[in-house]
Amino acid sequence: MILDLHNHSIKSDDGRAKVENYCQWIRRREVPIDGFVLTEHRQFDADSDYRALEDSFGILILKGSEVETDYGHVLVFGVNEDLLHAFDFTRLDLPLATVVRESERCGAIAVPCHPGRTRVGMCAHVEERGPVEGVGIIEVLNGGSRGTEDHDAQALAGKHGYAGIGGSDAHIVSHIGRCATRFPRRIKSEEDLVAALREGKYEAVSWT
């Protein structure tokens, strides 16, 4: 099963894509993904209900978040009520250690994204201050990467033994499905996704 793990809709300040339009695009362009995760910036969108779209298009739509930490931006999968009360998703300066630890405690999982990106990725921060305990997975393929950013992320993963995921970081409809993650098992829910990520059997894939 292939899931694109990093996307934004109009719920994000810089997102311009309606979720229905992502679905239409995936079907019309035969984008080879089975589903995607909406990781809105600095928030968890608890209100939107995409079940009708899932049924209509046969596409799995999951929800996560992209929060901002002292080590750059971090995707959080498996967000639940406990985690929403564990830290303030809107802050720009969350300690990565806290996000990782609290996610683990609440049954979620934190994945630093676009690590090779200046300031908002963890590579330079690790270089400067060392790795953060508890990080086990990073995003090694990001659809918005420039230059050597993905290469730097992969080098970081190799050095520290991190597993790697892929996500498009789409903000407009036509950018979905640029990168994704292939899992050997079936995933039906956020809980399944967290379990699959913990198992460590997956690979980042790219079509760009």
Binding site: R16, G144, R146, G147, H171, I172, H175, T208
Partner: peptide
Amino acid sequence: QGETRVMGT
């Protein structure tokens, strides 16, 4: 390099 500089709708 194929990097997105401006995007929109």
